[in-house]
Structures are given as structure tokens and as C-alpha cells.
Amino acid sequence: MSVDLVGSTAFKQANQRAFKSDEKSEASLAEPWFSPIAQFYKEIERLFAREWQSYVDGLAARLRWPPGPAPELWKSAGDELLYVKVLTDHRQAAACILCWKRTVEEYRVQLKKHYPSLDLKCTAWIAGFPITNTEVVFSKSVDAGEIPDDDDPLYVNLDLLHRYYLNSKDPNLTKDFIGPSVDTGFRLCGLSSPRKFVISVDLALMIVHAIRARPPGAEEISIVLHYQGRVHLKGVLGGKSYPVFWIDMAVDSGLDRLEDRLLEIQPRNTDDIKLFCEEFFSSHSGSVMIPYIAGNPDPYFANIPEWHIEKINRLREYWEQESHRRALEQESLTSEGGGKEPEKEQVASLFASLVKVILDNSPTKGN
């Protein structure tokens, strides 16, 4: 989930104090653009935490919907905040988007009251791991002793992931996400606007499925989707058009509503959205698929392709076998050389001796 402060660059440029040295009051200690930016970070965090906890304690408890892990900050990118939520049940997607929508709407009222030139826009998408997309772990410190020198990037990343999950509080490790779905999400961010909260097609399918199956008493889980049509997203789907769904974030405006009538912009039926999304995934099965969540109670989102299971098993086997091999290798080095790797000269001498033994015992000696 992304929320971006619209107009912040122009706001900072117009309110810079770099060349205004005549201001000496305490109020001038901070740059004039600092307060709204800092408040944006703080208030989004506070309001989102409140909305999520309200959902967990209220609707989720009443309906016995498992909330799963709480959303957490992924990263900040300039004046954009990105949050991530691990989905353990497809209904969490609808609940989380509803909480995110309410957070942005509430803070927008505060923002526009004090800084009319600023606004917010948001985007949301989903990505599956570890197939198709990958979690990557980095060392925060540029310290040669902390950064492994290894020509096997797959093993290095698996090893760092293992360390990260064993000790997620390690101050020198940070996690990020990369992959086609992540790239698609950032492309969709470029289509969002203060009015249009753009979401990915797989997220749209999760949301409408949850809404269609909601029990009595869950009317609060209400998210109205619009459809913009298919657009070209650079590098996505091999050049094929991508369907764009969005949630209306507009403040009630008579002019907007009249314009919507002229342009025939209206909410779409969940049945039509579901049928379209299913056909889209079927027509582009080589690039995208209906998402799944391992252990999801609804079989609609629990269908794990057999080749995904095979690949995950191979990945696990590789990690275990390679870790075991390296542990034995390190143990051998430790027992033979006090834990120190042999010097280059020693390696060269051992190699020369090995070559001599091979040649002396070779049936083709002299060739």
C-alpha cells in the first residue's frame, strides 16, 4: 500500500529558507516545509494503526475473521510511504484496503485545512513469494566483514533471509521486495491521482470475492470499484494492456458527479468484475494467475499449482544441502588449519602437487 504526498516538491521549493538568513526566531529553526512533511509521516502511521486495531477489535472479532499479522512500514521513498501486509486469508485484503482508505481520507481532511496546495494519492497491489517475486536482504553497513564474498547469489540471499528471520531485530540487516508484481505495482502508482486509488487486477479479484461472500453483519466491508479500461504499462505483460481498477477517493463535488454522468463513470457490478478478472487471468495464463494463499480457508484462493510446490521443495532441498556442504567444508578447514583459509601460495602448491600426482598416474602420461 502506497500513499504519496502530491504537490510536495513544489511546496518545498516555494518555501525554502536556504537564502533567507534574516529570520532569527525560534520558529525559523526548522525549514518552513518541514512541519507538513513530518506530520504526514507521523499521522499516517498513527491513523493507520488506529484503524487497523479498530478493525481487529471490532469487525474481525465479531465475524471471526482472522486478521493475520498487522501491516508494517515497508519503506519511505521521498514523500511516499509504503506499507506491507502479509496475507494469511484473502478477506484480509479487503479489510486492509478499507482501513487504508479510511486512513487516507481522514488525514486528507486535516491536510487540506492547513495546506490547501497539498493532497494525497494512494495505490495498492499484491505480490506472491517466493515464486515469481523474491524477498532480498541487504547489509545496511558497507563493511567488508559483513558482506559475503560469494559467487552464488541464490545461496547468499537465502542465507541472509535465514539470518533475517532468525533475528529480525538485527540492526545490520534490512529486507526489500523485488519481482514482476512489485514492478507492476510501482507502474500503477503512476496512474493514481488524488481521486483515483488504483489497485492491481489480482487485488480487485480478492476484494470483490470477499465482498460477494460476506456474511450478514459485515456490511461495513464495502468497497466500490470503478474500471478505467486497459492501458499500456511499460515493461508489464510483455507489452500487452493491463486492466486498471480504482476506488473513488473524491470529496463530494457536484461538478465531479455531473461530469461522471457525462463520461458515464459509474461503479461496476462485482459479478462483472469477477468474470472479467477470471477471463483476464485465463487469457494471460503465461504471465499472470489467480493468486493463492497457502492454507486459505476458501478453496478459490488456495489452489497452489503443482509446479510451484515442486519448485519450493527444490529450493528448500538446495538450501539444506548447500548449507550442509558448506558447514562440512568449514569444519574441515577449521580442523586442518585452525579455522583459517589457506593462503594463495598454499593453494597453488597443493594444486601443483595434485596435477603432478594425476599426471604420474595417468595412462596417457606424456601427451
Rank of each mutant, 00 (worst) to 15 (best):
M1Y: 10
L5I: 02
V6Q: 08
K12H: 10
K12E: 09
N15Q: 11
E31Q: 14
P36R: 08
A49C: 12
R50A: 11
E51N: 03
L59D: 09
A60I: 08
P66W: 10
P66E: 10
P71I: 02
T88E: 04
T88H: 01
T88N: 03
D89W: 01
K101D: 09
V104Q: 03
E105C: 08
Y107S: 00
Y107G: 01
R108A: 09
Y115T: 02
S117I: 09
A127K: 06
T134N: 13
V137A: 05
S139N: 15
D143L: 03
I147M: 09
D151S: 09
V156R: 02
R163S: 09
Y164S: 07
Y164M: 10
T174L: 03
I178H: 06
S193E: 03
F197S: 01
V198Q: 07
D202W: 00
L203K: 03
M206Y: 07
H209R: 09
I211V: 15
R212P: 05
S222K: 09
I223T: 13
I223C: 05
H226K: 13
G229H: 03
V231C: 08
V236E: 03
K240D: 15
V244N: 00
W246S: 04
D248R: 02
D252K: 12
S253T: 02
G254F: 10
L255V: 15
D260N: 08
L262A: 14
P267G: 04
D272V: 08
I273N: 02
C277P: 05
F280M: 02
S285N: 12
G286M: 10
G295S: 07
P299K: 05
I312K: 11
R316K: 14
E322H: 06
H324Y: 13
E329Q: 15
T334N: 11
G339V: 07
G339Y: 10
K340Q: 13
P342W: 03
Q346Y: 13
L350C: 13
L350D: 15
S353C: 12
N367P: 10
